[in-house]
Design a protein around this nucleic acid. Sequence first.
DNA 1: CACAAGTTTCAATAATTATTGAAACTTGTG
DNA 2: CACAAGTTTCAATAATTATTGAAACTTGTG
Lengths: 177, 177
Amino acid sequence: MQPSDNQLDITLTEAKAQFIHLWGVSGSSWGVSKTLAQVHALLLVSLNALSTEDIMEQLTISRGNASMTVRELLDWGLIYKELRPGERREYFVAEKDMLQVTRCIIRARKRRELDQMKRSLDQLAALPGDPADAEYRAFHATLTDIQQLAIVSDKLLTRLMQAEKSWFWDKFLKLFM
Amino acid sequence: MQPSDNQLDITLTEAKAQFIHLWGVSGSSWGVSKTLAQVHALLLVSLNALSTEDIMEQLTISRGNASMTVRELLDWGLIYKELRPGERREYFVAEKDMLQVTRCIIRARKRRELDQMKRSLDQLAALPGDPADAEYRAFHATLTDIQQLAIVSDKLLTRLMQAEKSWFWDKFLKLFM
DNA sequence: CACAAGTTTCAATAATTATTGAAACTTGTG
DNA sequence: CACAAGTTTCAATAATTATTGAAACTTGTG
């Protein structure tokens, strides 16, 4: 450890642990596994790249779990592989730009949830029916409303994903609000 | 059943069942119990109010489950109680206006997740530290970025919740995009 | 090609979360 | 107050989801 291995450091370590815990809890209430969120948090607050081994140790999780979680985070685009010449071991760094992080999360969830749902809704709405039947009309109206909502959400999310840093933090925050 | 108990009706019933299934699947990937989503879907596509008994039957779930789920949906504001004079039994209707539904969902999730997270972040960010320490500075910068993101999200969600029907569907969709 | 140093896979298991259903409760009525 | 007709609670259990860890795999090197 550095020469600054004093009270401050201990507090910092604790704060990071708390952050990792917080991220884990938040993650699980959004339908993401606790470990996934925690590995992400750990890498977010790590100054340098960590190996699978490091992750296992710091979060006391198994090798298999660490491996699969890291793979999934790579897939979301939330972390990057860092290869060191002459070393076989792989290291991982988190994307630290929160705008990018947001984009990755929106992109992944949109693909997995919204796009999938839109397809199902289209299929259901295509169902033929007797327009004279009030029950059919009501059902169809509900479907159409939900489709409409899905389209608006899609557009909003797409817009947010394309947002430039300046637009996002300035224009958006100041003009739009 | 009505005189129109023919092929069309069967198809409609099936379509509704499919919709309920779709809603259930979508719900569970967003961290909401399948049953909650399904009861909501069932009431959304029901022309008239249903009792706990009806819900139990149609979704083949237990009385306890139906009771608790209905309670939770009332709590989210997604369904209403309908009392019939002279009857003890309670009936439930879903809020059918999808803009309202969206508001309810945003409000509930914002309260449960975002507001809670903001509080934890504030606490963590308040942690004193040595500004000369690069590690501390990095950690603090990450926290601040996330707080910033939380604030922007909060504002966006609040704005969406206040949205008027016309604004939401017209201005939002056409001007903002 | 044998080996070392790692990574990945996946069946078994643990942990978590949702559901049941019976008992307790509530409430209006004769 | 006894009863009927409902609702709610909650411990037990079922279902689902996450995690482990050992075996299989991969890849670079002498």
